[in-house]
Design a protein around this nucleic acid. Sequence first.
DNA 1: TGCAGTGTTGCTTC
DNA 2: CGAAGCAACACTGC
Length: 288
Amino acid sequence: MPELPEVETTVLDLRKKVLNRTFLDVWTDFPKMIKLPNSFEQFKREIKGEKIEKIWRRGKNILFDFSGDKTLLIHQKLTGHLLLGYWILDNGYWRPKNPGLLGERINTYIHLLFTLDNGKMLVLSDLRKFAKVELLDKKTLEKELISLGPEPLEKGFTFERFKECLSEKKGRIKQVLMDQKVIAGIGNIYSDEILWQAKIHPFKETKQLRDEEIKKIYDTMREILPKAIGVGGESISDFRRISGEKGGFDSLRKVYRREGEKCSRCGTIIKRLKLDGRSAHFCPMCQV
DNA sequence: TGCAGTGTTGCTTC
DNA sequence: CGAAGCAACACTGC
């Protein structure tokens, strides 16, 4: 379940390793994963020989720009993993040359594999097959990304702008923070973590928030997300860096999946409640 | 055993 | 128009 910090970690890793590499070939056992162009054969024809000139992120989307007018978009959704290394085709599925860090949960579910011009392979493993892959021209890409809210870490994203974003949306603060149209990149883990640190109850109506509370959420968001990027993302779920390594956010994780444990701030038992079909983890004492 | 839970997005329905 | 519900999928845990 990669959110902004995990996707950013992946992008930073990819930049170091595959920038200026060229795609030589592509394999899949699940063509449905590729939404555009309409056939895998066409996707293959179009991506072969393309050189990766830029790697960037928008919300939870990973983007590879090629020369000319093409961009490869990958959204990992719940269980997608982008990994770089060497694999060998064996009996219809790919085995890692060096099994090392990866468990069966990742190794067994490789559904897309790119061969690069340095011999390395970039694979997309995805247990639940929710991931989305598209090869788009700039116009279509722009149309796809237009519905996303602003990037929370961008320099120009001021407190005033954040306040405006929240004011346009009614509902509970956790829900609103996770709404990609309001602000891009925050999911279940980081909404819980941000609200715990800001001492705001996840069920609090956005309209009821005072200015200083919104400021607290804004400051916390701009602190936690970079901190999570700095340690390479979270590790409670199956997220892995492209090397297979886990992220280091675990020791910083205060509430997410900590139901029944003591709040590190006040000692109260952390609660988990359903909110819009999702789990919200919070401290019932210090989050108001 | 079977069924709810997991968590993201986008489509359908009201 | 908006919100809510559900499907896409597969495995875990009760």
